[in-house]
Amino acid sequence: MQKYLYSFKMHLLTSFQYRLDTILGLIMSNISLFITIIFWILIYRSNGTGVINGYKIADMITFFVVSSLFRTFILSSGGFEISSMIKNGDLSKVIIKPYSINMFLYWKYLSNALFEFLKQFSFLLLITPFFAQYLTWDLSVHSAILLIIYLITASVISHLIWLLLGMMAFWIGQAQAVMWSFAVILNFLSGMFIPLDFFPHWSVKALELMPFAAFSYIPAKLYMNQLSIMEGTYLLIVYIIWIFVLMALNVIVWRAGTKKYSAIGG
């Protein structure tokens, strides 16, 4: 465990050294969030009712702001890193280390995520005064704790899913293009573009049981107190089961993949 924590620390340090983005960088990375918010404000203006599908404008904006914050815990970089390591043969160096590559990548990108989260969070605090009227602020201690557990769960699930996708490189070499297409689907299923409860009722239930909902939709709902602690806990158990399923799949795919690995280079 100590070794993973040390790598966590090492990466955190490197992040601080090299990734102190300017305000401009932050604005750029939040552009899609701004566009989404403006888009919804316009919709609400033209709609006139003030409520769409049970969401008031403040709910909608809160949904997108907090989910964009929570999305920093979607760890996809591990998958991309493993796929490029497979492709260019750099996996050879790590495959013979007495540690788990999954864990190594997890801690590395969790430290990145944490850094990113703090950055995003402070940025949001900075600009909040400009649209504070649109945000809801009401979080109980219980929900807050559950939320933290959710973010950890989301980071683990996303990491495992992306590793699986990244390991496609064992078979198809160029996995990145396929991974980017998957990213669009995953984003959609996690409620990045529209909250999942905009879908037909029966599909909402199914979508909530999918692991992708844990990425941002469910945590955002929890934050907005639109999900009871009970429901939240029930879904959490479902997602934890998903973690085990994904872990098993990872083991199987890793075993099969390393058999095919041809260790380019050297």
Binding site: K3, Y6, M10, T14, K93, I96, Y99, G265
Partner: peptide, 28 residues
């Protein structure tokens, strides 16, 4: 075992070697 590849570096380029050695110490 150890495998040294003359054309593949193992050490983080951004940090002094000693940091990688400390990490290696934990890993092994």
């Amino acid at each position: 075992i150890a495998f040294v590849m003359g054309n593949k570096s193992e050490i983080n380029w951004d940090l002094p070697a000693i940091d990688t050695f400390r990490y290696q110490k934990l890993v092994y």
